[in-house]
Design a protein around this nucleic acid. Structure first.
Lengths: 156, 156
DNA sequence: CTTGTGGCCGAATAAAATTCGGCGAAATTG
DNA sequence: CAATTTCGCCGAATTTTATTCGGCCACAAG
């Protein structure tokens, strides 16, 4: 089953990725179609998992999550880059992203915690528990200028 | 004006960050309150900008965005870390994140493009345009195991 | 004690989502 | 080429939901 998105699908995605809670009626107006037709398209995009979910962006500071860090992780298995380690990393709620990367290191993860001591605890208690992890290199974020996951959607 | 969130606010945030499109009626049931009261709380969380927005997560592959990279950027102005450069970087639609980081480099940015050639184009045409950028160090993502922006919200 | 403030409830109303029968274009089949 | 199926869309009917608003209660300030 091949996924093909037409111009209107892309228009819809473009609108709802910026505002997930736009009313279906308004969305229909924007793409100049009947609400029922648009709803049908959105449902199909959900089924095809082009739409992966709807999330609310929350200010991390408001819920006392002040620390953000990126950690490069090297594994002992060498170039194999254990998927087991990846799974364990991904299971940690503080870990927002786990990427398998090119280069000497194996993974790059993005971690958000309450403060520096909880980051330390995470590294000592959680990362050390993962056998394949041989070394880490941590980059602390001092200030975030921009942070969004909106992606570029082609016109056509 | 100090922001204080009570237990129910945190419950609400926890629910809606995982599912922005839950109906207000269902949300009210979950926190055991009247729909009108919950709506009032949500509106206030929006006003206080604890809630920063509602977004739809879209599969990047479905819209032909296959390349993901992290780029460390060093600036010539030294430790100053020009906010001008930060602003210019943040203005690029391919750039999803701009972080000011501790260490030798100044910025870490997260970039998503269609493919490797469009990443090259971005670096050649856009990054080079920014005068303060003196050098870059790019990390290519081969595979993403986890990617979410959900943050940990305390129980209380 | 009185006055205000804030948050909540619940019913009434307005708006929205959702369903569904039918239509027409395009593709498929015999 | 005609018959048939499929698909996406429309639009009205229906159901569900959001939203408004008056009133109530608890708490705090005067």
């Amino acid at each position: 089953m091949e996924i093909t998105l037409d111009k209107i699908d892309l228009q819809i995605l473009n609108i709802i990725q910026a505002n997930a809670k736009i009313s279906n009626a308004d969305l229909a107006k924007e793409v100049k179609m009947a609400p029922s037709a648009v709803l049908e398209r959105v449902r199909k995009l959900e089924q095809k998992e082009v739409i992966k979910g709807y999330t609310t962006q929350i200010d991390p500071l408001a819920v006392k999550q002040t620390m953000l860090a990126f950690i490069f992780i090297r594994t002992s298995v060498g170039f194999a880059c254990s998927t087991n380690a990846a799974t364990l990393l991904a299971a940690l709620p503080e870990v927002q992203e786990v990427h398998h990367i090119a280069g000497e290191d194996c993974f790059l993860i993005k971690v958000r915690t309450a403060d520096s001591s909880s980051l330390m605890r995470l590294m000592r208690d959680e990362l050390r528990k993962i056998p394949e992890v041989s070394s880490t290199k941590t980059t602390i974020v001092l200030e975030t200028v921009k942070e969004q996951q909106q992606i570029i959607i082609p016109e056509k």
